[in-house]
């Protein structure tokens, strides 16, 4: 049997697409880490919370275009609350307690989301919404037909859509970070809290902003993920999947999150198929991504694009 090139390419493309999904989650992490040095464990439950809010709204008959800003607003309020009641009192504490606080936050949100809404598994047919919302109502075929075929390779249209969304988001973020005044103050804060405060940047407002933006990213990522895996606790696990992604890319780099996502996405698929065959057992996907990340980290301990830490005594 010769090498199946079509299958191989399909794998690569599929891997790249799922890599994009990982990057989406990873960007949220990176934003918070960059601006406050916190490894935000609650990212996963924020995804769940945001997606659940949206789903319940639309299930209650709210129009797509209303539900989206409303859930965005919820996440913004949420971000501000987090800054006020968690970040501010915890400022200047050790990174480990900050990390643990976000784990506490994760539990809180999980309870809250399930208390406010419910803990059933919701399906989310984002594709239907998009067809209804974006396209001509006569023949709603753009997203309902799942695959496009190109050179014998099947590509899920939804994945293409997700990629476009992710790309746009990354572009917006890049412009925001590089060109706007607020973005500049964000970067200043991430460089050095004290120096930023000394030149008059309001730290608390910057943090609130970061958490709010992260909330919005969580919503978008949550909706796109929910299309794949349904709105339930699995969304939280998706975040653990994103962990090796940000670690490969480096905790401080947005391009790193993207590259990391692509590496993990492709590596995971290839590993599952080819390495799995080689050693004769299935399901190595669960730990293979961590293994890839380890290999990368062994050569570059702070990720591909992460800031090199200079250690001094």
């Amino acid at each position: 049997m010769g090498f199946d090139w079509v299958f191989f390419t399909e794998l690569i493309v599929g891997g790249l697409m799922s890599g994009v999904m990982y990057s989406l989650v990873a960007i949220g992490f990176v934003l918070i880490y960059k601006s406050s040095g916190i490894f935000n464990f609650a990212q996963g439950t924020m995804l769940l919370f945001a997606a659940l809010t949206f789903v319940k709204l639309t299930e209650g008959g709210v129009n797509f275009w209303v539900a989206l800003p409303v859930s965005m607003g919820t996440m913004v309020v949420f971000g501000i609350l987090v800054e006020r009641f968690m970040m501010r009192p915890l400022a200047n504490q050790s990174l480990l307690s900050l990390f643990m606080a976000t784990v506490g936050l994760a539990i809180l949100i999980e309870g809250l989301a399930q208390y406010m809404w419910d803990s059933a598994i919701h399906g989310l047919q984002l594709a239907d919404f998009l067809d209804l919302a974006l396209l001509d109502p006569v023949n709603m075929t753009i997203f309902v037909v799942d695959y496009i075929e190109w050179l014998d390779i099947l590509i899920s249209k939804f994945d293409v859509f997700a990629t476009i969304v992710a790309g746009t988001m990354i572009l917006i973020l890049a412009v925001f970070f590089q060109k706007t005044r607020t973005g500049m103050s964000l970067r200043a804060v991430s460089d050095d809290h004290l120096a930023a405060m000394a030149v008059g940047i309001p730290l608390s407002r910057v943090w609130a902003l970061v958490w709010a933006v992260t909330g919005i990213i969580a919503l978008i990522a949550g909706l796109l993920w929910a299309e794949r895996v349904s709105v339930s606790f699995t969304l939280v696990e998706a975040v653990l999947k994103a962990l090796p992604v940000i670690l490969i890319g480096g905790l401080t780099s947005i391009p790193g999150a993207i590259v990391g996502g692509l590496i993990i996405g492709v590596g995971e698929k290839l590993g599952e198929i080819y390495l799995g065959d080689l050693i004769g057992v299935q399901g190595i996907e669960t730990w293979f991504s961590y293994f890839i990340a380890l290999v990368f980290l062994l050569f570059r301990p702070s990720g591909l694009f992460g800031l090199k830490t200079i250690e001094r005594v």
Binding site: F85, M86, P89, L90, Q93, S97, M100, A101, V103, G104, L105, A106, I107, L108, I109, E110, G111, L112, Q114, Y115, D118, S119
Partner: peptide
Amino acid sequence: TAVVDNVAKITYGILIIALLI
């Protein structure tokens, strides 16, 4: 029980954050 469970989670989360603060 589901409600109690969720309220327990919320309280627990708040407890952890409060303790850390």
